[in-house]
Structures are given as structure tokens and as C-alpha cells.
Design a protein around this nucleic acid. Structure first.
Length: 496
RNA sequence: GCCGCGUUCGUCUAGGGGUUUAGGACGCCGCCCUUUCACGGCGGUAACACGGGUUCAAAUCCCGUACGCGGUACCA
């Protein structure tokens, strides 16, 4: 423990890894790696059997890997503090729960949920706005504090359902120092006697979390703000066990542009992918997501914006994390994505593009051609898969002509395009170069005394099917004489 | 309702008593480059929630209010 940094990312496998969860993981990772020998631990908190989702754990691991976060200890990696799946640690929690009971810091409670509801109803009617199972009410409930000991034993032996609850003190101020928020304090009277062990024998989050963080020698708990109000319960547990609590740091939440926590529904309404898996599927650059997420609630304090994961590890400090919620800005993510895409070599992009093209049924030409096409296209797209749409004409003949672009096809267009076709059809293959193609176009417009666009736009439509795109002459050179002439002929036929 | 945490341009943020005519980035707008669309370059737009204190001086410290968010489970 002596000063070494050990942090954990502790998601529950109840679904695919949420983008907010990914950021929590990232901040944990950055914090760990900003320290010498800091360890980043993955712990799977699968204590709610009813919400368990098949494949969720693998999705979490895949997502972290995709971002480049290496897990030091976890279910797959192992480590000296395993198992790292809470469902496999049940005996440990039982043991510690029993210890608390033996020390009179926790107790068995046999009340059914109905009975608890009734108690709450009753208290509400008598003017208590927020009734709790607490130091006062537990005295009138069915538990090992109120029942005679032999009856408690009989119930336990008979296998009656029970939970174990923490004896939360009646009046106590619980204070702790949050590394992001500073001084935080709560009154114990606002707290329920927390359930530690559920009737199915599984621990609740609170017990499992505290026991594991202690046993795994976690030095810093870095988690979302939604946990801030649970922290006093945890502090109380640490006290009950006589353990030193780890340092706490509660991260601001990621918000939806329309306000509120970025939920699945809200995000989808606003076109924001919510699961990391979606970003992978949609071919976002992992470096972009990482960079973007790091800056969502944190900044290094200078004017820099672009940093790799490794650089972020050097720069990250918890005291520079902001306190207020941060709205997810999809356009900024795309800006980052463009940046990281353009940073890559054409060769690297080509290699990645081939398998993507395959899934979309696009046939690709040889590498040299592909890389040239990419160099013409990559400044014009936000994501790698958009290269396919943007540059579709490099890979197949245009099937139809863009409607908006077609407005530029005027009555004199076919005549001009035909004249141009005549001129370039006489070129040898090795003369079919951008500069030559351009000068021939100039010849035609001069001969007809019209503007450049009068011919260039129709020609662009004929050759690419689009009204925009990379330099037309370079594009034609790459496409080659045969293809260009064919496409012009098709266009003249179709558009008259 | 109660408890807690927040609040600087539309968004992410810098700034933590005088250095500030409040800086950067995304977005948006304009210009240049380009006889396409982008990229790039240059410029512009735009913020200290409100009210009281403290102080010679407050975006910065304190107290209220408002608003937002989170929590209030045998979910994490």
C-alpha cells in the first residue's frame, strides 16, 4: 500500500459499455499511468443476477482494448488479488458480513418487502416525509436486534429469507475529502440501514465494493458523480471494519445536449452513439474518442487540444478535473476524428479500408490506385467509412447522377462535353494527365467563349455523378482514359 | 419532499483577489486560397446565473436565491 497507486474500473455487466463508463475507465487509466507503477484493475461487479447480460463482460474488455487501455489485473489477466469477478467472491463477502454481525455492527433482518412498504406507508401517514429503515424504525421491525435470540436461530436454521443490514448510527456527521470536490459531508440520519447481503445471498454493491476495494488495496476510487451520495455509506462501512478508506474522486457526469444524464434514449434521439461498441462499428478512430473523452471534463490547463493516450497519461491530474457536468458535443468528436484520420498514411488507411469495403460489397482496385484515391479524398471526410461514399466513383461507375448537381447540366452541356470528349479521345494513354486534361478543357471553353464552370461542372457530373469532390483532372487521370470516355458516353446518352 | 453536488461564450474549457478590453478549442459567420466540394490560412460573433456582503479592488472569497444535475432500492 505504501503510496503505490492502484485504481479499478468496476462496471457491472448489465449491458454494453456506455460511453460514460468508458470515460470513467479512461480517467482511472490515465490516473494510474500518470504514476510510476500505477495499476489499472478491471473488476466485474456482477452481483445483480437479474440484470446480467450475456456478452457484456467481453464487450467491456473489447472496448477498453480498442481504446488502447491495457488492463493490469482483471478476470482475464489474473493478478494477486483475484478473483476479479464479484460473483466468484461470495464466500468472502459472507465472511465479512458475518464479522460485522458478530461485532454487533450489522444484523439479520427478516422483514418482507411488503412489511417494509407497510412501515413506510404508516410513517408517511403520521407525518414523516421520508421514512427509513433506520436506528429508530429498526426497533419495531423483525430483525435480530428485536427478536429473541433463539427465534433468530430458528429462523436461520429453517432457511427463512433474510438480509443483513448495517447498523447506521442515529446521529453522526460523515465527512470525507473528495479529490475533485473538496470537503463533503452528510448526516447519517439521512441514511437507511444499508442492506449488505441480499436474500439471494449476494452482496449489495456497497458491501462488495468496500470489501473488494480494501482487499484489492485500491488506493483511489475514481467513479461517476452518481456515487457521491453513496459514499457516506461506504465510509461507514470502512469505519465498521476498521479500515482506512481509499481516496475518493467523483467525476462530473456526461450530459445530453438536451440536458440530463446522457441516457440511451436521449443519445439516440440526438444521433449520438451511446455504446462504445457503436463507435467501433461505425469506424470511429479510437484515438479521437479517447482524446475527446479526456477533454470532456478535464483539461491540461494550456491551450493544447490534441494528445495521444500516452501524452494524456503524462498530463493527467485529478485536480484539473472540472466539477460541473459536461455536455457531449458530437461535432467536436468528429473534428477530432478528422484530425486523427488525416494524420494517418494513405497506406495505413488503405489497409483498414479494404475490410470495411468488403462488408459493404465494394470491390477495390490495386493498392497503388487505392492509396492515390485516398490521398484525394481524405481531407473531405470525417470518418474512414465515408471514403467509400465520397469516392464511390473511383471504384465503380456512377449509377445515377446527383439530383442537385444535375441542375448544372444545361442545354449546352452535352455539346461542350462532346467537344471535350473528342479532344481527349485523341490522347495517348501516357498523355492522359491532369495538366493536359485541364489545358484541353481550357481550349474548349475558349473556343466556345464560355466560362470554365460551364464545362467543368457537367464534366464532373458525367465522370463522377457528383457535383463536388476532389480535383477533377487529377481524378480523371487516376480513373484512366478508357473509364473516363465510357462514362462521358454514358452521360451523353442518359442526359442528352 | 428530503439530502448532496454543481453554475465562465451555443458547447468543452483557461483563469482561483489587481497581469483581463475575460484566453483557447468546437460550432457558426465572413474573407483569402481554389473557376467544384473540402482541407488550409486569416478575421469575426459570443460568456463570468442573480442578489447581498468582505475588500482600496471580486469572474475569483463568504452568505442567500434561482436554475440544473445526482441520490433517496434486497440496481449498480
Amino acid at each position: 500500500m505504501e503510496g503505490s497507486v492502484r485504481v479499478r474500473f468496476a462496471p457491472s455487466p448489465t449491458g454494453f459499455l456506455h460511453i460514460g463508463g468508458l470515460r470513467t475507465a479512461l480517467y482511472n487509466y490515465l490516473f494510474a499511468k500518470s504514476h510510476k507503477d500505477g495499476k489499472f484493475i478491471l473488476r466485474i461487479e456482477d452481483t445483480d443476477q437479474s440484470r446480467y447480460v450475456e456478452g457484456a463482460e467481453q464487450d467491456i474488455i473489447d472496448s477498453l482494448n480498442w481504446c488502447g487501455m491495457d488492463i493490469d489485473e482483471g478476470p482475464d489477466e489474473g493478478g494477486d488479488f483475484g478473483p476479479y469477478r464479484q460473483s466468484e467472491r461470495q464466500e468472502i463477502y459472507n465472511k465479512y458480513a458475518k464479522q460485522l454481525i458478530d461485532e454487533d455492527k450489522a444484523y439479520y433482518a427478516f422483514d418482507t418487502t411488503d412489511e417494509i412498504d407497510q412501515m413506510r406507508e404508516r410513517l408517511k401517514k403520521s407525518g414523516n416525509p421520508s421514512p427509513k429503515y433506520d436506528a429508530v424504525t429498526r426497533q419495531s421491525m423483525k430483525n435480530s436486534l428485536t427478536l429473541p435470540q433463539d427465534e433468530v436461530e430458528k429462523k436461520l436454521e429453517a432457511g427463512d429469507e433474510y438480509v443483513v443490514r448495517l447498523k447506521v448510527p442515529r446521529r453522526e456527521t460523515i465527512r470525507f475529502e473528495d479529490l475533485i470536490r473538496g470537503h463533503v459531508s452528510f448526516e447519517s440520519k439521512g441514511l437507511d440501514d444499508q442492506v449488505l447481503l441480499k436474500s439471494d445471498g449476494m452482496p449489495t454493491y456497497h458491501l462488495a465494493n468496500v470489501v473488494d476495494d480494501h482487499l484489492m488495496e485500491i488506493s483511489h476510487v475514481i467513479r461517476g458523480e452518481e456515487w457521491l451520495s453513496s459514499t457516506p455509506k461506504h465510509i461507514l462501512l470502512y469505519q465498521a471494519f476498521g479500515w482506512e478508506p481509499p481516496q475518493m474522486a467523483h467525476l462530473p457526469l456526461i450530459m445530453s445536449p438536451s440536458g440530463g444524464k446522457l441516457s440511451k434514449r436521449k443519445a439516440e434521439e440526438e444521433g449520438i452513439p451511446v455504446n462504445t461498441k457503436e463507435y467501433i462499428k461505425q469506424h470511429y478512430e479510437p484515438e479521437a474518442l479517447v482524446n475527446f473523452l479526456a477533454y470532456l471534463g478535464w483539461s491540461p490547463g494550456d491551450d493544447s487540444e490534441i494528445h495521444s493516450l500516452n501524452e494524456l497519461c503524462q498530463l493527467f491530474t485529478l485536480d484539473r478535473v472540472s466539477k460541473g457536468g459536461a455536455v457531449f458535443n458530437h461535432k467536436k468528436l468528429l473534428w477530432y476524428n478528422e484530425h486523427y484520420l488525416r494524420e494517418q498514411t494513405n497506406k495505413a488507411i488503405a489497409e483498414r479500408l479494404r475490410p470495411i469495403a468488403k462488408t459493404k460489397g465494394v470491390e477495390f482496385p490495386d493498392d497503388e490506385y487505392l492509396q492515390k484515391a485516398i490521398s484525394l479524398l481524405k481531407d473531405r471526410v470525417s470518418k474512414i467509412d465515408e471514403l467509400l461514399e465520397m469516392g464511390s466513383f473511383f471504384f465503380e461507375d456512377p449509377e445515377e447522377y446527383d439530383e442537385k448537381a444535375l441542375k448544372k447540366w444545361k442545354s449546352d452541356s452535352s455539346d461542350l462535353v462532346s467537344q471535350y470528349r473528342e479532344k481527349i479521345s485523341e490522347l495517348e494513354d501516357d498523355e492522359f494527365k491532369a495538366a493536359t486534361l485541364k489545358s484541353h478543357l481550357e481550349d474548349v471553353i475558349n473556343a466556345n467563349d464560355v466560362g470554365f464552370g460551364k464545362l467543368m461542372m457537367p464534366l464532373r457530373i458525367a465522370v463522377t455523378g457528383q457535383g463536388f469532390g476532389p480535383d477533377l483532372f487529377t481524378s480523371m487521370q487516376l480513373l484512366g482514359k478508357e473509364t473516363v470516355l465510357e462514362r462521358i458516353d454514358t452521360a451523353l446518352e442518359k442526359l442528352g
